[in-house]
Write a protein that binds this DNA or RNA. Structure first.
Length: 198
DNA sequence: TCTTAGATGCGCT
DNA sequence: GCGCATCTAAGAA
């Protein structure tokens, strides 16, 4: 039961993104325990212009290692949490070996436990609790203090389950970006009502 | 149900 | 100063 996450960390980023579908996120807070099931992910790669750790240069791309994206250059299995749009935190699982940037953005969860606590963090219609990357971090009280956190350990854990059959996984282009918009690097669980958008 | 615009603050150039 | 891996309220239908 221990460290099933470790097995995923040797896989390529896009494979990790698929394997995270159906995984559980467990968040331990003073108020209680929150659990959710990952239903939507996106991959961001080392040679991907949409990735925070990549910059476009004439004739191609190169890495850009800054304080903000430092976690992505570290060992896999940690969290990359960043702040954007003046309001929102985003949660990623860092992938790829130490020194090579890569990450999987967690875009949506199906709530499993602690809904009352989530509603205390987000006073919205329950259907909108965790069906978006900024929504789920607010519901789960995930902020910059968890940037770099080892996601195999409390107070924030990712616990993978068995791989889903391919027939249950939908592959599409990514959402909310302006570069590399044609890459089919977004994945979600077919028919799941908590997916942010079809 | 859908589409649109404004909010919001920080990191990077 | 600009640009965001977004969300919400408001308005039309």
């Amino acid at each position: 039961m221990e460290n099933r996450l470790e097995e995923l960390l040797h896989l390529p980023t896009l494979e990790v993104a698929r394997r995270l579908l159906g995984a559980e996120i467990v968040r331990d807070l003073p108020e209680g325990r929150l659990r959710g099931r990952i239903v939507e992910t996106e991959g961001y790669l080392h040679n991907d212009p949409a990735c925070h750790a990549v910059r476009e240069v004439p004739g191609g791309v190169c890495h850009r290692h800054t304080r903000r994206n430092d976690s992505m250059f570290g060992p896999p299995g940690r969290a990359y949490v960043y702040f954007t749009y003046g309001n929102h935190y985003m949660l990623n699982l860092v992938t790829e070996p130490d020194g090579i940037p890569g990450a999987v953005l967690i875009r949506a969860l199906e709530p499993l436990e602690g809904v009352e606590i989530m509603l205390a963090h987000r006073q919205v219609d329950p259907r909108n609790l965790t069906n978006g990357p900024g929504k789920l971090t607010q519901a789960f009280a995930i902020g910059k203090d968890l940037d770099g956190h080892d996601l195999s350990q409390p107070p924030l854990q990712i616990i993978p389950g068995d791989p889903l059959p391919d027939a249950e996984i939908v592959t599409t282009t990514r959402i909310g970006i302006t570069r590399a918009v044609d890459k089919p690097w977004r994945f979600y669980i077919k028919g799941n009502p908590w997916v942010s958008r079809k």
